[in-house]
Design a protein around this nucleic acid. Structure first.
Lengths: 152, 152
DNA sequence: TAATAATTTATAATGATTTTAATTGACACT
DNA sequence: AGTGTCAATTAAAATCATTATAAATTATTA
């Protein structure tokens, strides 16, 4: 964890931003809850436990900044809130998501499944792909099993 | 166009909703501006030209309804607004988008490029895919050409 | 036609996010 | 240590998209 904080610190410095205590607290929350997809409000409440004086606006600004630097990705699953998701270290691309329409669970797919598709887009549409967002909506394994049991 | 209105009317009726004048005016705007990706506000302003008495809330409700019936898709490109996009007739899936980070233009890809990827997701993750959302961010053909000229 | 249900309107409310203005804090120079 | 500068933070207010509410209107059924 310290190693990743160090790296992020360097990334900030390289654009002449500083890793202030508030920013560090925010990053730590994101690292600890890496599997989750927290909203700004969620992050705010968690950061407050470490640094009670922090303001919501600062969290927003920090997340916005981290987003610009591609340290976190800002996602939107259609409910009214933006969610923030730490990029895997070294990942060039946004990872994919599976959203279950039954239980709301969100799984992540880290593998890049789109290499072939991107080639097609670049060749056929002349579009230089820099990043992508892919979300599947459907029914997760657990909910399928539940359905099976319920109908048997 | 009348044909598509008819079809949408039937789709509404099949769920015992009515095609009210306000709803029809809204659908007509969407049909006329099929290539665009209008926000609720955009739609509202355009519908107002046909039916000046309509209220913004009605447009929202109508778009929500059309969205539930999968007649339009609600998309979110990351700016704070939801946009509404008419589904191609008979399309089972959401279509894909290419968003240019230089000029903001949005192109559509109607072809389904994800059949193979969906198979992988279903097999390897046990996730039953119902729909998907895929957006590429990058540089469109026009902007690439502009860049080339500028650097020569 | 009377009663019922669905829809719309206008307005107000909500809730997420952003902006503002004032304050604080860190760092560089003297 | 003292001062100036500039980025960062806070708290509060403002903004913006969207949703809820209540009253009025329209369509539908009995």
């Amino acid at each position: 964890m310290e190693h990743r904080i160090e790296r992020i610190k360097k990334q900030l410095h390289s654009q002449s931003y500083k890793l202030t205590p508030q920013r560090e607290a925010t990053v730590r929350v994101l690292l600890e809850r890496e599997e989750d997809h927290l909203s700004a409000e969620d992050v705010y409440l968690l950061v407050k436990e470490k640094a009670p004086e922090i303001g919501l606006a600062t969290v927003y600004r920090t997340l916005e900044l981290l987003s610009e630097l591609k340290i976190v990705d800002k996602i939107n699953f259609g409910d009214g809130v933006s969610r923030y998701d730490l990029r895997k270290e070294g990942a060039r691309h946004f990872h994919h998501h599976l959203v279950c329409t039954e239980c709301g669970a969100v799984e992540e797919i880290v593998e890049d499944l789109l290499e072939d598709v991107e080639k097609i887009v670049e060749n056929d549409w002349g579009f230089k792909v820099k990043d992508h967002r892919l979300t599947f909506h459907g029914v997760c394994k657990k909910c399928q099993e539940k359905e099976l049991k319920a109908s048997s």
